[in-house]
Every structure is written in C-alpha cells, then in structure tokens.
Amino acid sequence: MDDMYREQILEHSKYPHNFGTLDAPSVSHEEHNPLCGDRVRMDIQIADGVITDVRFSGKGCAISQASASLLTDELIGMPVEQAKVYSKDDLLELIGIPLGKNPVRLKCALLSLKALKVGLYGVGHIHDDDDD
C-alpha cells in the first residue's frame, strides 16, 4: 500500500499537470468507470499529425488522477500515430507503482488511456485490451 502512494503519485494527484479543458479540441472523449462512478475526459489538440496540447478533467481516485496527469505530460509533442499505439504497459511503467493484478485498480490507472484511445480511434473502433 505504501508503495502505491509514493511521493510522485501523491504530488500528481494533488497538483495534476494539464488539468482542465480546451476551447476547441480536435478530439474530446470522456470515459466512465462504472465500478466507482469515476470519469476522465481528455481534450486533445492536433496539428500536422502531432499532439500539440492535451487537457484532462474529471473526478477520480489518486491513482486515476496521477495516471492521467503523467500521461498528458507524455503526450504533448507526440505524433498521433505513436499515441495510438501507446500501450497500457507503457503507461503502467510510467506510473511505476506495483498495482499487481488488481483489476479494480488497473481500471483506475488506465481510465485516461482508454479515453485517449477511444478519442483517437473514434468510438466503435477501439481495440479494448484493457479488460483483463
């Protein structure tokens, strides 16, 4: 447990980076976690095939907020094609905490990634590999 709430996670959850919304995002998508009612919306600005800005908003636990915060930092400046294949293992490595095989906490950690993927691919075209 103490491993889970490391300094980096607490800092990002208390003072999240890129929190908010964009006025005219190229892509915007919100995902819900029906287990706990949490939601994360990702607003993404794209120019010339590159993500130029990202904002996230919503409510969630420390893990989901910190994960979204870390992910947005990573995305800014990333080509869309690269973002499309950004994997859950990439994100889990970035978060760097031992979530183990707890499917509930994995859902929290991966909610922002799901919002990103569904947003980039368009609803109905997402290959959902998050549901272990």
């Binding site: 447990m1 103490d2 709430y5 287990l35 706990c36 009612g37 949490d38 636990c61 906490r105």
Partner: peptide, 29 residues
C-alpha cells in the same frame, strides 16, 4: 480530499476491509 478508492486501499494496507464505490445505488449517490 481523499477518494473512496484511496481510502479503501489505505485501509487495506492496515488489514481493514471496507467497500468503496457506489454500492449499487447510483441514484442515491
């Protein structure tokens, strides 16, 4: 200032099992 999931995870670390979520009562929440 503490999300229920985090409350439950911290309590789990103390060996205390509680539930976090909407407890199948979304309209009530």
């Amino acid at each position: 200032g503490v999300h229920p999931h985090d409350v439950a995870a911290i309590l789990d670390g103390e060996g205390v099992a509680v539930r976090a979520g909407h407890h199948c009562t979304q309209p009530l929440h």
